[in-house]
Write a protein that binds this DNA or RNA. Structure first.
Length: 644
RNA sequence: GCCAGUGUAGCUCAGCUGGCCAGAGCAGCUGAUUUGUAAUCAGCGGGUCGGGGGUUCGAGUCCCUCCACUGGCUCCA
C-alpha cells in the first residue's frame, strides 16, 4: 500500500500502482468525470499513469491552468491526427498548448492549407474525438525514437529528439497518430466536446527567421459547447473595443494609401486628445524639474555613428537622403540630439540633474507585416526625456521617474500591466553590452530595489537589456490580446561616454554623467491606441475630444445655445452645438454614439433660467443646473487630473 | 520581409457557379417639419467594384502582378 496526500493534507491508502483517475473515482464519480490530469509531486501526469510510491496528489480540472494545458495539448495531437488523415506524409514541428488554445506547426510539402480547409479538419477532429481513443504513453529509447521518425521522414522530430536525453523520451499514441511528446494528456479524446480551428499562419521553425517557414494552425477546444460559444462571443466583444474600429467611428485618426502605410493622420478629434496628453505631460514634467527642448527631425550620418546606432540600427531607420555630399537620416530616436544639447550647455555638477524633455517626432522603418493600427507605426511622437545625473543622484532620479509612471497609471486607471525588467548577462559583456561590469551590477541592484520597494509587479528577464544599460518596459495588452510595450525607462552609461558628455565635479575634475531615457507615456500613437481600447472610446471628460455638446430642443433655442456654447468655449471647455433640425431624440442618439461625455439640453425651461439640462454619456439625465455650476463641475474633473 | 486571407459609395455590407448586377441601410445634400432625453418624413447626389495587365463575344465575378489591410511568424515604443 502507498499513501496519497491530497491538497487539503488528508491522506488515503491505495495499492501500489494506483492511478490518479482511480483516486478521483474513490472520492466521487463526478470528480472522476471532471478531472483532466493530475499533479503528482509537482509534476503534471496523465490520469492513468500508475503511481508507484507515496506521493502528493492534486487533481486538475478545467478551472486549473494545468488542466487546460493538458486538454489543449491533447487537442493539438487530435488535430495532428486529422491533418495526417488529409495530408499523408505531412511533417510535424511542435504543437503546444498556449494561453488560449493550441497550435501545431506543420510542413505540408507543396500542399497549401488555407482557412477554407479548416472546416473539414474540424469535422474530422470531431469524428476522431467521438471515438474515445485513449492517449497511450510509452517510454522509448533515443535510438528507437530516432529510427522511427527517420523512417517516417520527419526531420523536425528527429532534430528535437537529437537534443533530448536518452531514457527520458516518451511517445504518445491516440488512434492512428503517434507523436513524440512529454505529455501529459487526457485519458482519451472523448473529453474534447467543442472544437474551433481559428486560423492558419506562417511560423518559422524554432522561431528562427533564417529557417524554413512552417504552416501554423491555431485552434481552441472546450469540454462543453457552451464554453466555446462564450469564448467566441467574448472575442466578438473584444473586437468592438478595437482602437482601429473606434478610431474610425469617433473620427480620431485615419490612414491614407497616398501618405503611406504606418503613417497616421490625426483628425481634429484625435488631435484634441493629443493636446490634453501633452498638457498633462507638460504640467507634470514642469513640476518635476524638466525643461523642454526642440530638435530637428533629421540629422547627419556622423551623429548616428557617434551614438552607435549605425550600423546596428540602420535596418530600422528610413534610408538616408543624400545632399551636398552628405547623408542625412530621419531620426528614429531623440537621444543623440539631446546629447548634443547637453554638450552645448556644458553643465557643471551644480546644473545636474539636467532633465531635457521633448515630444519628439521619430520615424522608424518597421517591416510592412509588423504594422498594426496605431500600435505599431512608422511615424511616432515620443513622450521623451533624458535625465543626465551623477552616480550619486541616480537612485533618487530613478525613483522619481518610477513615481511619475505610477502617478500616470493612477490617472488613467491602468492596473493591468507588467513591468519587464531587462538585465544584462555577464557572458555577453563586451559583446552585446558595454564592458562596465560594476556599473551594470550597481544600477541593476538599484533598479530592482526601487521596484521591490514600490511594490510593483515585475518580471526580470536576463540578457534582454539595451546595449547601454538595464531597462524597464511596461507591458500591456490590446483588446484582441496582443502584448505591447507601452512605456520604457532605460539606464544608459554608454552613450554619454561615446558623446564625450562630461561635467565638472566638486573636486574640479571632469566626470561622466549617467543618462536615464524615459518615456512614461510611450508614444502618442501607441498610448492613445491603448487608451481608446482601455476606455472603449468612453474618454473621461478631461481627455475627451469634445467635452460637451449643446443640444437645442428646437430652432428657436439655437440663439440661446450659441450664447451658452460661446460662454463655455471662453472658459476653455471644448464644446459645440448640434444645429441640425433633427428632433432632440436624434441629437441625443448622435451625441451618445460619438461618446461625448456631457450633453447640454436647452429648451424653454432652461432658456428662462440661464440653466442647462445635463445628460451624461452612458448614464442619462443628471438634472438641470446653472451654466456656471456645470462649468465648475467640469473644471473640478480636470483639476483632479492636472493638479494631483 | 515571410505564410494564409481580404479589398464593392464616407461607414457597414448584398451581389450564387462570368451575361439588365453596379445595389441596400446609415451618413451627406435639398425640402417639409420646430420637435423635451438613443433614429420625423420625402426627394436627390455619390462608386472607372484597390491599381495595372491578361483570359473571354462578355469580368466585382477567372488568371497574373503590384498596393493596402486583416490574422499569425520574425522584430519592436
Amino acid at each position: 500500500m502507498i499513501t496519497i496526500t491530497l491538497p487539503d493534507n488528508s491522506q488515503k491508502q491505495f495499492p501500489e500502482g494506483v492511478t490518479s483517475y482511480q483516486v478521483a473515482e474513490s472520492i466521487s464519480k463526478r470528480l472522476a468525470e471532471a478531472v483532466l490530469a493530475a499533479k503528482v509531486n509537482d509534476e503534471v501526469w496523465d490520469l492513468n499513469r500508475p503511481i508507484a510510491a507515496d506521493a502528493k496528489l492534486k487533481l486538475l480540472k478545467w478551472d486549473e491552468d494545468e488542466g487546460k494545458m493538458a486538454f489543449w495539448h491533447s487537442s493539438a495531437h487530435l488535430m495532428a491526427e486529422a491533418l495526417e488523415f488529409f495530408y499523408p506524409g505531412i511533417k510535424f514541428g511542435i504543437g503546444p498548448p498556449v494561453e488560449n488554445g493550441f497550435y501545431y506547426d506543420v510542413d505540408t510539402g507543396d500542399r497549401v492549407i488555407s482557412t477554407e480547409d479548416l472546416g473539414k479538419i474540424e469535422e474530422k477532429m470531431k469524428d476522431l474525438a467521438r471515438q474515445n481513443n485513449g492517449y497511450v504513453r510509452k517510454d522509448i529509447s533515443k535510438k528507437d525514437a530516432l529510427e522511427y521518425f527517420q523512417k517516417k521522414g520527419d526531420e523536425y522530430k528527429t532534430e528535437l529528439i537529437g537534443e533530448l536525453e536518452d531514457g527520458k523520451i516518451t511517445l504518445y499514441t491516440q488512434g492512428n497518430f503517434i507523436d513524440l511528446c512529454r505529455g501529459p494528456h487526457l485519458p482519451n479524446t472523448g473529453f474534447i466536446k467543442a472544437i474551433k480551428l481559428l486560423n492558419v499562419a506562417g511560423a518559422y521553425w524554432r522561431g528562427d527567421e533564417s529557417r524554413k517557414q512552417l504552416t501554423r494552425i491555431y485552434g481552441i477546444t472546450f469540454p462543453q459547447q457552451k464554453l466555446l460559444d462564450d469564448y467566441l462571443k467574448m472575442l466578438e466583444e473584444a473586437k468592438k473595443r478595437d482602437h482601429r474600429k473606434i478610431g474610425r467611428e469617433l473620427k480620431l485618426f485615419t490612414f491614407d494609401d497616398d501618405v503611406g502605410s504606418g503613417l497616421p493622420l490625426w483628425l481634429p478629434r484625435g488631435g484634441a486628445i493629443i493636446d490634453q496628453l501633452e498638457k498633462l505631460a507638460r504640467i507634470t514634467e514642469t513640476r518635476a524639474g524638466y525643461v523642454r527642448v526642440r530638435t530637428p527631425h533629421i540629422a547627419k550620418e556622423s551623429m548616428y555613428r557617434t551614438s552607435g546606432h549605425l550600423p546596428y540600427y540602420a535596418d530600422s531607420m528610413f534610408p538616408p537622403m543624400e545632399l551636398e555630399g552628405g547623408k542625412y537620416y530621419l531620426k528614429a530616436m531623440n537621444c543623440p540630439h539631446h546629447h548634443k544639447i547637453y554638450l552645448s550647455l556644458n553643465p557643471s555638477y551644480r546644473d545636474l540633474p539636467l532633465r531635457l524633455a521633448e515630444y519628439g517626432t521619430c520615424y522608424r522603418y518597421e517591416k510592412s507585416g509588423e504594422l498594426f493600427g496605431l500600435m505599431r507605426v512608422r511615424s511616432l511622437q515620443m513622450n521623451d526625456a533624458h535625465i543626465y545625473c551623477t552616480r550619486q543622484q541616480f537612485a533618487s532620479e530613478f525613483r522619481a521617474v518610477n513615481d511619475l509612471y505610477l502617478n500616470y497609471f493612477k490617472i488613467f486607471g491602468i492596473d493591468k500591466y507588467v513591468m519587464r525588467f531587462s538585465t544584462h548577462h555577464p557572458s555577453n559583456l563586451g559583446k552585446k553590452y558595454v564592458d562596465m561590469p560594476e556599473l551594470w551590477i550597481e544600477t541593476e541592484n538599484m533598479v530592482r530595489k526601487v521596484l521591490v520597494e514600490s511594490n510593483i509587479p515585475f518580471k526580470e528577464v536576463s540578457d534582454e537589456a539595451a546595449f547601454y544599460g538595464p531597462k524597464i518596459d511596461v507591458q500591456v495588452w490590446s483588446a484582441i490580446g496582443k502584448e505591447f510595450t507601452l512605456a520604457t525607462n532605460q539606464v544608459d552609461f554608454a552613450q554619454p561616454v561615446r558623446f564625450g558628455l562630461s561635467y565638472i565635479n566638486k573636486n574640479n575634475q571632469a566626470d561622466t554623467p549617467i543618462c536615464i531615457h524615459r518615456a512614461p507615456l510611450g508614444t502618442h500613437e501607441r498610448f492613445i491606441g491603448f487608451l481608446i481600447e482601455h476606455y472603449a472610446g468612453n474618454f473621461p471628460a478631461w481627455l475627451a475630444p469634445d467635452q460637451a455638446i449643446v443640444l437645442p430642443i428646437s430652432e428657436k433655442h439655437n440663439e440661446r445655445a450659441s450664447t451658452i456654447s460661446a460662454f463655455l468655449n471662453n472658459s476653455d471647455i471644448r464644446t459645440f452645438i448640434d444645429g441640425s433640425d433633427n428632433k432632440i431624440g436624434k441629437k441625443i442618439r448622435d451625441a451618445e454614439l460619438m461618446k461625448i461625455p456631457y450633453m447640454l439640453i436647452i429648451g424653454d425651461k432652461e432658456a428662462a433660467g440661464n440653466s442647462v439640462a445635463v445628460r451624461k454619456h452612458g448614464a442619462g439625465d443628471i438634472g438641470i443646473m446653472s451654466v456656471e455650476d456645470f462649468t465648475d463641475k467640469l473644471k473640478e474633473e480636470e483639476r483632479i487630473v492636472f493638479n494631483r
